[in-house]
């Protein structure tokens, strides 16, 4: 396990590289879902206030 984490002496470069990429992957999920959630909330508020009786 220690040998794996050490990555033949390249640990200081490999793990940050994987970390940054994983962060970008996860952030993209959060950002995309956040933008859809905000758009849905705005649209719901709008249709509730304008077309509530239709």
């Amino acid at each position: 396990m220690k040998a794996f984490l050490d990555m033949g002496g390249y640990a200081a470069f490999i793990w940050p590289a994987y970390g940054v990429t994983l962060a970008v992957l996860v952030l993209n999920i959060i950002w995309a879902r956040g933008s859809l959630r905000r758009a849905l909330e705005t649209a719901r508020r709008r249709s509730a206030s304008s077309g509530g009786n239709s």
């Binding site: 995309a32 859809l36 649209a43 077309g51």
Partner: peptide, 26 residues
């Protein structure tokens, strides 16, 4: 997958006055 989620958000913003949106949401 990201594009499919984001494009829905974009469409909702752009079509905010369209009737189909309130119909879809309700």
């Amino acid at each position: 997958a990201l594009l499919l989620v984001r494009v829905r958000a974009e469409i909702l913003q752009r079509e905010r006055t369209a009737r189909w949106i309130s119909e879809t949401l309700s």
